[in-house]
Write a protein that binds this DNA or RNA. Structure first.
Lengths: 217, 217
DNA sequence: TTAGTAATTGACCTTTTGGTCAGTAAAGCT
DNA sequence: AGCTTTACTGACCAAAAGGTCAATTACTAA
């Protein structure tokens, strides 16, 4: 029937199993941290023999690294293709909004990163150096250009970025605290809008911008 | 010489040893997390036999709880005794400043809390319910009163508090990332002022306030 | 002093950890 | 079909985990 190049049964099952394992590992690592999650737990969760995991991923470290790599692969840093000609308010508003949506709807990835950074980022050091740092540098340049053109207040662009990251990720990483303090069991549909609104108001006004009336997707 | 009630040598050494152990545990737990730090590591770090730790603190859980309790004991939530008559700008500016100083100078405690909350706050649930929540409620009321009196913008007071917490704690919890992105080895003396300035500018202006000229200690 | 009590700890135990390996099953190829 | 090679996995292992306990060492009070 299918004459694909490689519908190898071998590769097929391998990929299927690897996905199973990575999914389980991602969940457990983000929930319990690197040390808190054990290989046997991952095996049980993925319904795969433990030795199979070691066969695919050499070691626990290897598995952990693969989990991180996979997250990074589709970890859209957002804010791409921004230029000096764009409107700061619109760009930043949309960025904040997308980060809040991510935090509320997919907190696991954010938490995995958080626990990794808390531990001193042993596995992310390289990623930060070779990817995040240049990416940040570029955004900082755009922000600086906007400031120089008096399109927004002059604040330290690095700290502005940190402010956006911290405020938005907070709702993922510290979800337990937020919910406890607000006496809620979980976020509801209105929360995303509410959070976005509050953060955007404070930050945008805080740097001399106005929250745009209508946002684009 | 001393006629104190209880200069028992017993109690003296017990307290001394307990402090030794708690110090070591605090450092290790905040560095490696609950699962990452082992009893033998704590024993070695505190230069005390492992069985002694178990003798004082029943179990690893007990030790961990004691560490948390001790931190909470002198964890000044700040912002105390605030009333509607106070000046919002001054109060919030000082609060931000004190949180930044804490984040930069004593990041360990913040990180321990962070890793605890990341795990779903198993040991802090009760604390949040019985302490933080009422505390927050009270501050929220004051903020709301300020807003009603048109002393500041009307934003959700909960999210405003979260914004202050997240932005300031970020420099403790995500220190590794901040330093990597900014290409620094460690924070220097100018950073505290710089960070405070940036955060205060954004947040205060963001809620319709002005950064006070001169701050009080 | 000394008896009584509490503090201390070395040795030991069980369970779990990450990891190996030899043997078996399953493709793939001709 | 038969042979080669790769994929898989149950059984096993040493190390480290948290925790117990009986024996020893302080203190304290009389």
């Amino acid at each position: 029937m299918t004459t694909q190049i490689k519908p190898n049964k071998k590769e097929a099952t391998r990929e299927k199993n690897q996905k199973l394992i990575l999914d389980a590992a991602e969940q457990l690592f983000s929930q319990l941290g690197y040390d808190g999650a054990s290989m046997s737990m991952v095996a049980k969760e993925a319904q795969v023999p433990k030795a199979n995991i070691l066969y695919y991923f050499k070691s626990k470290d290897g598995l952990y690294e693969s989990v991180i790599d996979r997250i990074i692969a589709n970890w859209n840093l957002g804010l791409d293709n921004v230029t000096i000609n764009d409107d700061p308010a619109t760009v930043l508003y949309n960025y904040i909004k997308s980060k809040v949506i991510l935090a509320v709807n997919q907190p696991m990835q954010s938490r995995l990163f958080a626990s990794e950074i808390l531990r001193g980022a042993p596995y992310l050091q390289n990623y930060f150096r070779t990817n995040t740092r240049p990416w940040v540098k570029q955004k900082v340049d755009v922000l600086q250009a906007w400031m120089d053109a008096d399109k927004m207040d002059k604040v330290d662009p690095y700290h502005l970025l940190f402010t956006i990251w911290s405020t938005t990720q907070y709702y993922a990483d510290f979800q337990a605290e937020v919910l406890l303090v607000m006496n809620k069991l979980e976020y509801d549909e209105t929360d995303v809008a509410q959070i976005t609104q509050s953060i955007a108001h404070i930050i945008l006004k805080g740097i001399g911008l106005k929250v745009p009336e209508q946002s684009e997707t």
